[in-house]
Amino acid sequence: MDLAVPLGAEERKVRAARRFGRIGLVITVAWLLAVPAFVVWTGLPAPGFTWSLAALYVVGLALHLWRIREHVTSLGRPASVPFVVVTSAVALALTLVGLASTWSGWIWGLVGGVLLGDVVSGMRARWIALWVIVATGTVLSLGLLITHQRDYGIPLPLWLGPAVAAFYVCTMWLVDVERLWWLKAVTDLDYSRRVAAELATARERLRLADDLHDILGHALEVVAFKSELASRLLDVDADRAKAEMEEVQRVARSSLTEVRALVRDARVVDLSTELAGARAVLDSAGIQLVVRGDPAVVTGRARSVLGRVLREAMTNVLRHADPRRCTIEIEVADGTARLRVVNDGVGPGTAGVGGTGLVALGRYLDEHSGRLDAGPGPDGMFHVDAMLPEAVR
């Protein structure tokens, strides 16, 4: 069975960018290998320069490959001080010895420019500009001094070689640095995309955990309460005990349906339905309920959001308090829907205890541009106050 996961369009783009970046590195190395081939083709260096040029070239190529290895492991990291010192010395020596060796020695400036790119990659822009200006000026001035003391036996101006070498030094570093900059930009964007995907996954898991807490926490609290009530009524009122157990079955089946809907992302919570459920539960518990306002005045997405708030508030009433009365207020004013639940019976050991439900509910309202205030008030009552725009999506 094929378990390969198909790549998305963004992943393919990132891989293509990395592939072209590596191809660019290979092309740069190919250019460096073409330099000695060009020198041999145009004429071997003058006696006394061959071995020194060969040694400097091998060292320069090794330094470039070393820098590529550093970029592969830590793209964009500035070069170390020893690397900067050694590479700068090798690049300058190779360029100047190349100018002194033959009339075509300006080609060695190409290697010097690439090595300059290895030196300045990862630096700040102002330091790069300073390095390039100093390196170009040094190659041009010392190159002119060297070529004026040489006679190549060809009808070309003596300044031409140093000028071309300085041009290579001034420009070739940009090819190296720009390619690495683009490769790093693509890598950083890919990393940001992956982090965003991981955060989205974590957020979805948190949302699922909050919804499960909302469904099962409330359902299990109602089941536990009604089961205890039925056991107490069994000997004194068998018919009512049976009715309570039937209600336990209904709540369990309803919760199972909601869990399945949650898995299908089709769960609907309605304020009117939750208010009817709260009324039934509190009546069974002998808790006086006062409702002010009509849930029908709340429309749109706000009905579902406030329905979830009411469910969590009822869960807290049953779990964290021993109330005798509870008040539910529903209103819409100035485009803002508000639900306020107030209950007594909050003892000193449970005051302020909201578990994780109210914390999750606060996050849920934040996601819908709403606000949740919950906690014990100075009147000894526990308040849950939720507000959000009625036109929330």
Rank of each mutant, 00 (worst) to 15 (best):
2 D>F: 03
7 L>Y: 02
8 G>C: 00
9 A>C: 13
9 A>Y: 14
10 E>C: 13
18 R>A: 14
23 I>T: 15
23 I>L: 15
25 L>T: 06
28 T>S: 13
28 T>N: 14
36 P>A: 00
38 F>H: 07
39 V>W: 08
40 V>N: 11
45 P>R: 08
46 A>D: 01
51 W>S: 14
55 A>K: 05
56 L>G: 10
56 L>E: 03
56 L>F: 13
59 V>T: 12
59 V>K: 07
62 A>M: 07
72 V>R: 15
77 R>Y: 11
80 S>G: 13
86 V>E: 09
89 A>T: 12
91 A>R: 04
91 A>Y: 10
91 A>H: 08
91 A>W: 05
97 V>A: 10
99 L>Y: 06
109 G>Y: 11
120 V>D: 12
121 S>K: 04
122 G>W: 01
125 A>W: 15
126 R>E: 14
127 W>C: 05
128 I>D: 13
133 I>P: 06
134 V>Y: 08
136 T>F: 15
148 H>I: 00
149 Q>F: 11
153 G>Y: 11
155 P>N: 02
164 V>G: 12
167 F>N: 01
167 F>R: 07
173 W>Q: 04
173 W>F: 12
175 V>E: 14
177 V>D: 12
180 L>A: 11
180 L>D: 14
181 W>N: 14
186 V>M: 14
189 L>K: 08
191 Y>E: 08
191 Y>A: 10
193 R>F: 11
195 V>G: 09
198 E>N: 05
200 A>G: 08
203 R>P: 02
209 A>Y: 09
209 A>Q: 12
211 D>R: 07
215 I>E: 03
219 A>N: 06
220 L>P: 03
223 V>E: 07
223 V>F: 05
225 F>V: 04
227 S>F: 02
233 L>G: 02
233 L>N: 06
235 D>A: 11
235 D>P: 05
240 R>Y: 03
241 A>N: 02
241 A>P: 01
242 K>C: 00
243 A>G: 09
244 E>R: 03
245 M>C: 03
246 E>K: 05
246 E>H: 10
254 S>V: 06
255 S>W: 03
259 V>P: 06
259 V>H: 12
260 R>G: 15
261 A>R: 11
262 L>Q: 07
263 V>E: 12
270 D>N: 07
271 L>N: 03
271 L>W: 01
271 L>G: 04
273 T>P: 06
283 D>G: 04
286 G>Y: 01
287 I>H: 08
287 I>F: 08
294 D>W: 07
295 P>K: 07
302 A>C: 11
309 V>M: 09
313 A>C: 06
315 T>P: 04
319 R>P: 02
319 R>Q: 09
321 A>W: 01
323 P>N: 10
324 R>N: 13
326 C>K: 04
330 I>F: 03
331 E>P: 07
332 V>M: 09
336 T>R: 14
337 A>C: 05
342 V>S: 02
343 N>V: 00
345 G>Y: 01
349 G>C: 03
350 T>E: 00
354 G>T: 02
354 G>C: 04
354 G>R: 01
355 G>A: 10
357 G>S: 10
358 L>Y: 13
359 V>D: 15
362 G>E: 13
363 R>H: 11
366 D>C: 11
371 R>G: 08
371 R>H: 13
372 L>W: 00
375 G>K: 07
379 D>V: 02
391 A>Y: 09
393 R>L: 14
393 R>W: 15
